[in-house]
């Protein structure tokens, strides 16, 4: 559960965040902001805060969301719920998460069809090496491309 050294995002990572760089630079996108949501301990709290994030996104009239998970294992419970809550509100979501071999989803649902696995370790494990399994620019571009595709599909379904 939780987070290991290879997926840990340092303060330096946030300062140079590739996800923000990629999304904010894209001229087809109106980036409304970054919602930070904690990953709590208790299951009821996990569902609450993730659902609140999805409700905020809906209030913001977001056409899409990119969601990143912090760590894996029990953190994926929040993650899967947040994706579902977004999806149920008609907001297409793409995501970035660590899977590898260690970090298969512990729960799953119909809204997890656009997740980029950020694992870089060759054996697919939490290697305890700082920064090894962090997201990079390529991962972020992939997630954004998947999101654009999903948004286009959702437009087509709505008849736009």
């Amino acid at each position: 559960m939780g987070i290991g050294p290879s997926t840990k995002e340092t303060s330096m990572h946030h300062f140079r965040d590739p996800l923000l760089d990629v999304v904010s630079a894209d001229e087809d996108i109106d980036l409304l902001g970054i919602i930070l949501v904690g990953s709590p301990d208790g299951n009821a709290d996990k569902l609450l805060v993730g659902t609140r994030a999805a409700i905020w996104a809906q209030g913001m009239r977001a056409d899409g969301a990119i969601i990143s998970a912090d760590g894996w294992g029990n953190s994926h419970v929040d993650y899967a719920n947040t994706c579902e809550q977004l999806g149920k509100r008609g907001i297409p979501a793409a995501g970035l998460a660590f899977h590898g071999k260690n970090g298969k989803f512990v729960v799953t649902n119909a809204y997890l069809d656009a997740i980029v696995d950020i694992c870089k370790n060759k054996d697919g494990i939490e290697s305890n090496v700082l920064g090894e399994n962090n997201m990079n620019v390529k991962d972020c571009r992939k997630a954004l491309a998947m999101l654009k595709l999903k948004m286009r599909k959702s437009d087509a379904e709505r008849g736009n």
């Binding site: 996800l19 999304v23 109106d30 993730g50 994030a53 977001a62 969601i67 998970a69 947040t82």
Partner: peptide, 10 residues
């Protein structure tokens, strides 16, 4: 397209 980044943090 209006997009929001959601970051699940510790």
């Amino acid at each position: 397209k209006r997009v929001v980044i959601i970051r699940e943090v510790a």
